[in-house]
């Protein structure tokens, strides 16, 4: 039997704000091009998740109103989720759901909304949204590689001392706009504010997730080389634009 990856896509109807579909497309195309079967299992609020079947959990970003609904639903699965994450299940969480994996979120009103407590971080509502192109240097590889995307968040996230960031900010705001850190990595969980969509333009991160998903199920994790000329050109073009002073002048709202 050929290799097979099952991705659970949490709440695609609620958490689908910033082109999260692109991340799903990147994973499924890149698996298919290598002859690896990939199934995406959408999970809706109230559905049972069979964590035994899930090789990779994907959670996107949502609007505040939807996010509260989702948080309430996810809390019911907290214990299961924690257990499987400790056992090494890969998770990729973008924006709102990245915040949700943390300890808590403090709203503008001062109200504290509890998170899932999986990542040792917390988020505070900021007074202005952090919006724009972002480039980070990411240490998942040696030597480090760049990741480029777009961020758009009002929350400022602060990681606890033991938590690894996903990367160092080269351009943009990152977690909070002040400590030059972006995202977080814990076991095989990756949380980030970057979308754009992130995976198509950063194919090495897509492949990293595929490898982790294969390893988690004890499958052969060798990935054959693909022709990534277009993706790499898009990556470099996006990095160039993010760093270009002229482009920022024309595409930044003050």
């Amino acid at each position: 039997m050929g290799r097979q990856i099952n991705i659970c896509h949490l709440y695609p109807d609620q958490l689908n704000l910033y082109g999260d579909r692109g991340n799903m497309l990147a994973l499924s195309c890149r698996a298919r091009w290598r002859g690896i079967g990939l199934r995406i299992i959408p999970v809706e609020p109230g559905d049972q998740i069979n964590f035994e079947q899930c090789d990779l959990l994907f959670m996107g970003g949502g609007q505040d109103s939807d996010q509260l609904l989702v948080a309430a639903d996810l809390k019911k699965r907290q214990a299961d989720l924690r257990r499987t994450i400790e056992a090494g299940m890969p998770v990729f969480a973008v924006c709102g759901s990245y915040q949700l994996l943390g300890n808590y979120y403090t709203a503008v009103s001062g109200e504290k909304i509890g998170g899932l407590g999986i990542l040792d971080l917390y988020t505070e509502a900021g007074d202005k949204r952090l919006i724009g192109n972002a480039v980070i240097s990411c240490g998942l590889w040696q030597p480090a590689r760049t990741l480029v995307g777009f961020e758009n968040h009002a929350g400022k996230t602060y990681c606890g001392p033991g938590l690894q960031p996903l990367g160092t900010v080269l351009k943009g705001f990152g977690n909070n706009g002040s400590d030059q850190k972006e995202g977080a990595v814990y076991k095989n969980v990756i949380g980030t504010y970057l979308h754009g969509s992130l995976l198509p333009k950063n194919p090495w991160l897509a492949d990293h997730l595929l490898v982790k998903a294969l390893e988690y199920r004890g499958q052969d994790s060798f990935l054959s080389e693909l022709d990534d000329t277009t993706e790499i050109k898009a990556h470099h073009a996006a990095v160039y634009l993010a760093r270009s002073w002229r482009h920022r002048m024309g595409s930044t709202r003050v």
Partner: peptide, 15 residues
């Protein structure tokens, strides 16, 4: 383009 009048976030292309 991704200037202000276009919307500076191109992730909509994926939708």
């Amino acid at each position: 383009n991704d200037k202000i009048a276009d919307g500076t976030d191109v992730s909509w292309l994926w939708d």
